[in-house]
Amino acid sequence: MSLLEVRGLQVAYGGIRAVRGIDLDVPEGEVRCLIGANGAGKTSTLKALSGLLTPAAGGIRYDGQDIVGIPPHRLVRQGLAMAPEGRGIFGRLTVLENLQMGAYSQTGSARIQSSLERVFELFPRLAERRRQTAGTLSGGEQQMLSLGRALMARPRLLLLDEPTMGLAPRMVSAVFDALRLIAGQGVTLLLVEQNARMALRLANYGYVLESGTVALQGTAETLAEDPRVREAYLG
């Protein structure tokens, strides 16, 4: 049984269906990715999975439990966390305050302190800049902060929405290196990406979304070799 099982998921905004019945599975310990063009329904899918949107139809099971209709703040406490699109850092707060906010759902100062040390180990840059206002960080550093903050909730499954959006190529590889380390610590990842090349290099398995449906799926190697994927997303 997979950690996350999605069956027939539909998401609609008013009358417009953005996601038209998709099936996904994310087994524990794996990295899976969702690729596709703009407007294919990637972000809507992720929002439904994290509880930010209520699906129009379909089922979502996390850890064997039906989680449709459960609000995001309760899912976080069950280990299902999300790093939102556009980083969503708290610009006025310092790096340290941002990370502490990430541990909002956690109790026990020793536990939070050890999470903090783990994040600083993963992102030494954040440790250096802990007293700096988050808004003054560079785009790449802000993304590191967003990831670090999500890890403060000690997730079992982390949903990532376009973590490399708008970053310089050098920062893109830095973010993927960080994701590899996070996956290495046993966190299950579901990654939404436009950068299909990097995403398929990191993930074990991928889904290609087109106009709200799964057009293709398979192991990362097969997808990377698939002529349709090569033409549409790898160029």
């Binding site: 930010l52 609000p71 995001p72 703040h73 976080v76 790093a83 939102p84 969503g88 850092i89 909730a153």
Partner: peptide
């Protein structure tokens, strides 16, 4: 600061 991020923090 950011309501979506706040919800994502739990």
């Amino acid at each position: 600061e950011d309501e979506v991020a706040a919800a994502a923090m739990g």
